[in-house]
Amino acid sequence: MTVQDAVRENLSELTAGQTKLANALLADYPFAGLQPIQQLADSTGVSPPSISRFVNRLGFAGFSEFQHRLIEELRESSRSPRDLRALSAEADDSCFLATYAQRFADLARRLPETITQQQLGTVAALLADPGRSIFLRGGRISDTLARFLSMHLRQIRQGVHHMADDPELWADSLLEMRRGDVVVLFDFRRYQPSVERLAAAIHAQRRAQIVLITDKWQSPAARHCSHVVALPIEIGTAWDTAAAALALIEALIVTVSEHDWTSTETRIECWDALRADLQGKDSNKDQETS
């Protein structure tokens, strides 16, 4: 459990002053917690002794231990494949596939502990709502996941838009967004600053529902998002895994399609007929020019 998770888990049991402190920590996580205790007290109006009692409630012996954990999380959230390779055991080529498959199976078993059925249902209901347009975008690597989800959602329903690669063109998408539309963002370890800026702009200017799919350390974009899904990505190698994200995406695709299967089936039938017609025309044209 991260410090952020611990703070959220205790929110319902905090005093008014502790709630104020917790909200300040979450609003600028983890950096707010890395300030000197007196500076944090001055900025939140919560006394240093109250801050100490708050971190004790979270399970830390004192404020220095609390900050040490935040620093460790910050370090973990920025690790590169080179860093992870130095920490992992050298791969044994003779049995690597079997070992990797076992790690994947262990990760898959942990997935229901990471995202609850209720959270899956909430996100799926947003994506299935025909009254909402959907916009998707990811980071440098994670945008492949956004593309994958957008392609399948377009087969299920209309109003699905994958945002352009060039951030200069994102303003076009923001202008099309209405209050209540859904934006799905992907951002994993070594987070993309442009994704955070995008989330901040959408939250401030368009008031859309933002769903962030990230890891347990959580992208800085999380502070601007309505729904945050934190997935396991560590698998003991130099490369983090996207397996949990793909499993979530496929579960969402199935769940969204079942919200109104009659409509989904009709759209797929029309989609397939149009594809077959267009492919046939392309084939005839190729024959005519060959």
Rank of each mutant, 00 (worst) to 15 (best):
Q4E: 12
E13N: 14
A16F: 13
G17S: 13
T19N: 06
L25I: 09
A27M: 10
P30W: 08
Q35S: 06
I37Y: 04
I37T: 09
Q39P: 05
S43Y: 09
V46Q: 03
F54W: 12
V55I: 14
N56T: 14
R57N: 09
G59S: 05
F66H: 00
E73T: 01
P81N: 01
A86H: 09
L87V: 05
S88Y: 13
S88M: 07
A89H: 14
A91N: 07
D92Q: 08
D93G: 11
C95V: 14
A98C: 10
A101N: 14
L107P: 06
L107M: 15
L111V: 10
P112G: 03
I115C: 03
Q118W: 02
L120H: 03
L120M: 10
A124N: 06
A128T: 05
R137F: 04
R140L: 12
I141N: 04
F148P: 00
L149C: 05
S150Y: 08
H152P: 03
R154C: 12
I156G: 03
Q158F: 09
G159D: 07
H161M: 06
A164M: 06
P167V: 07
L169C: 05
W170P: 03
L174C: 05
R178G: 10
R179D: 11
G180I: 11
V183T: 07
R189F: 07
R190Q: 14
I202C: 01
A204I: 04
R207N: 11
R207C: 01
Q209F: 05
T214S: 07
Q218G: 01
A221T: 08
R223C: 10
H224D: 02
C225N: 00
V229H: 01
A230E: 04
A230G: 05
P232I: 11
I235T: 05
G236Y: 06
T237I: 07
A242E: 13
A242D: 12
A243Y: 10
A247P: 02
L248R: 00
A251F: 07
V254L: 13
V254Q: 09
T255K: 14
V256Q: 02
S263C: 11
S263A: 15
C270S: 15
W271N: 10
A276S: 07
Q279I: 05
K281G: 09
S283K: 14
D286I: 04
